[in-house]
Computed example of a mutant assay.
Amino acid sequence: MSEVVLSDLQDGVLTLTLNLPEARNPISNAAVIDALCAVIEKADRDIDCRVVVITGAGSAFSTGGDIASMRLGGGLNDPSPTTTRRNYRNGIQRLPILFESIEVPVIAAVNGPAIGAGCDLACMCDIRIASEKAKFAESFVKMGIVPGDGGAWLLPRVVGWSKASEMAFTGQLLTAAEALACGLVSKVVPVDSLMDEARAIALQIAANPPHAVRMTKRLIRESRLASLSTILEASAAAQALCHTTKDHAEAVDAFFEKRAPTFTGN
C-alpha cells in the first residue's frame, strides 16, 4: 500500500501531500490522522524545518470525511454514542489540537475542493492560498451532522461570525474567487502555479530567523483569546529570548555591514 501522506523536505520547507487521490484525500481515517500527526509533530521538533506546506494529490485538496464509511458502524460512527464520542476525541480531533499547539508555520496549498473537514483542515493552517480550481464548503449540515472536527471554532476566526454562520448553515460551495473575497484564502493563482507560489511564500518565511518566526506565530495564535495585557507580557518575554539569539546578532551585524544575513537557528 502506498503512503497515505507523502513528505518531501527541501531547503527547510517540508511539503506534505495527502495521497489518497482516488478517494479525494479523506482525512477522517486513522491511517491519515496518524501519519499527519506524526510528521507534523516531528517537523515542529526540528528547528531546521522552517515551514510546512500541505496539499493534496490528484484533483482534490481534501473532501473531508470518507462518506463511504459513514453508515452506522463505519468510520468514526458507532452504534454506541459513547464510542463515537471517543472515536472523534481520539481520531480527527487530534488534528486541530495539534495544529493549535505547534509553532512551525503551516501553509495550505489548496489545489482543488476543500470540503467539510477538508475546509477545516485548511483553516487549521496559518496561511491559505488556492488554485483557481479550488472550492470550499462547510458542508456538514448537508449530511445531517455538525462540524465534529472543530470547524465551529476554526471557521469564524478565519472569515468572521456572519460568513462562517452562512457557510455552516447553508453548506454552500464557495469558488476560489469567493473564498478570496471573504478572506478564507489570501491569494488565488493558476493551478499550474500553485506549488511554485506556495514554495515562494514558504522560502520567504524560511529565510527569516526560525525562533523569531515561531515565537511570532505563538503570539498571533494566543492573541485570538488573550487580553492585550497578556499578549504584551508574552511579547516582552519572547523578545527577551530573541535578543539573546545569535540570529538577532547576525541581523544587526548584517544591517550595519550592508549585506544579506545568514540565519542558522541559533
Rank of each mutant, 00 (worst) to 15 (best):
S165W: 12
A168V: 13
E138G: 15
D196W: 11
Q172D: 15
E197N: 07
V159S: 05
E178M: 03
C125V: 00
A198R: 10
I127V: 11
P147D: 07
M124T: 10
G151K: 02
R199G: 15
C123F: 01
V191N: 13
P156A: 05
I129T: 06
T170L: 02
R199T: 14
A122T: 05
K187W: 00
A134T: 13
D126Y: 00
K187D: 01
L174C: 12
E166K: 10
E132R: 10
L173Y: 08
W161M: 08
F140K: 10
W161C: 09
S162Y: 14
W161E: 13
K163H: 13
S139T: 02
L194F: 05
A200N: 07
G171T: 04
A176Y: 04
P156N: 09
W161N: 14
S165M: 12
V185L: 02
P190W: 06
A179G: 10
S131E: 03
W161T: 13
V158P: 04
S139Y: 11
D196S: 11
M143Q: 13
L121Y: 04
I145E: 13
K135S: 15
V185P: 00
V158T: 08
W153M: 11
K135D: 10
S131C: 03
S131W: 00
M195S: 08
C182P: 09
K142N: 15
W161G: 12
R128I: 10
L121I: 03
R157K: 04
W153A: 14
A181Y: 04
A168P: 06
S193D: 11
A177N: 13
T175I: 04
V191K: 11
L155M: 03
F169Y: 09
A177F: 09
G151C: 02
K142V: 11
P190R: 06
A200L: 09
I145G: 10
V191Q: 12
A176I: 02
V146L: 14
M124Q: 07
A198Q: 08
V159P: 10
G151Y: 00
M124E: 01
L180M: 12
A181H: 09
M167V: 10
W161S: 14
A200H: 10
